[in-house]
Design a binder for these strands. Sequence first.
DNA 1: AATTGTGAACCTCTTCACAGCT
DNA 2: AGCTGTGAAGAGGTTCACAATT
Lengths: 208, 208
Amino acid sequence: MKKISDSTISRLSKYYRTLGRLIEKRVKTVSSDEIAEIDGVTSAQVRKDLSFFGTFGKRGLGYNTVDLQNNIGTILGLYKKWNVALVGIGNIGRALVDYQEFKKQGFIIKLLLDNDEDKIGTIIGNLEIMPFAQAVEYLEEEKIQIAIVAVPGNVAQGVVNSLTDAGVKAILNFSPLSLKVPKGVMIKNENMSIELEALSYFLTNRGK
Amino acid sequence: MKKISDSTISRLSKYYRTLGRLIEKRVKTVSSDEIAEIDGVTSAQVRKDLSFFGTFGKRGLGYNTVDLQNNIGTILGLYKKWNVALVGIGNIGRALVDYQEFKKQGFIIKLLLDNDEDKIGTIIGNLEIMPFAQAVEYLEEEKIQIAIVAVPGNVAQGVVNSLTDAGVKAILNFSPLSLKVPKGVMIKNENMSIELEALSYFLTNRGK
DNA sequence: AATTGTGAACCTCTTCACAGCT
DNA sequence: AGCTGTGAAGAGGTTCACAATT
């Protein structure tokens, strides 16, 4: 398979969401121009992104919203169910347990892990917080494919090492550090500080 | 000022954090190669990123960790204090109030806004949740420069419109939609679903 | 007439490679 | 000798522009 850029994938996620909203509004057909306008990109970009995966439109007419959403969903693997472990049940972890958006896209949190004695055994939603020390066992039991890591920076790399040793192949990292993973494992960073710092830079330097 | 790419800015954030950790470990000097290794980029990339802003190293020797961190902090505007409003005090909003990393970088949450009658008046940390209906007034009063928007997708654009009308120039958006802002306003998206979907794509297509 | 799909042109970002400094 | 700073080359991503299709 041809290497597809990260930006194309993340734009496809946006188109997917945009199509969802159009479908809610009973829109049946949409042009690349309309999608582009909503998502703040060019229409050529939309068509090019799609062209890597096939031809989904009708010349002169545009795209059927439902079909296109389905196609993008399939490309992104959203119709599979993914079993997710959440590691580190602090403020952010707790918020993520309830984050509705995840469930909607097939990301099902099946395992909560922490190493804090006080937290282990606590029930959140309908899940009990389990000891990270036995992570390997639980990860296997629950057939976890994706781990969300929301632990303090100073222990994040260790946690990620344990997870990848246990065979986890995809990680979403909320700690503010660059973490290393072995080849064949994908890690994505959700780093709020980096985005805020970009805003800080913008406010500091605009006009210059 | 020459236009600097977003990726350069976000790498500078990473270098900043990496230098912080080196300084904690009493490291005095670092080469572009070492920074690059830690942050998973090339050494040429590190030097090029820095070169847009000045010359900070000594040939043959490398960079003084403390000086370089200071320089990057200044470039990013991190030594200013930024007054931040948090709009939408749901699960994510609540988690962000306590997020220590923000405070450390000079982002000070000074205002909590929500439009839910049941929430208004509640105190979180040492801040009272105020009614979004009077946002303009409070934003001015607290001299808010940055707003973090953590409201449901269907009301996000409206909230952002009010904020930009009230003069807010920088927004960090946690809703899962692409939002429009007027020229001169910067919006950064923190979209957990997009990252998870990239992981889903990776797991679905690896090996092909 | 409208809109897609796409090769080619363009532009931007990254890496190379080496002169220049310590 | 070691490492930075940077112009030039290279790679990758975006936009153009138009033939193809409905």
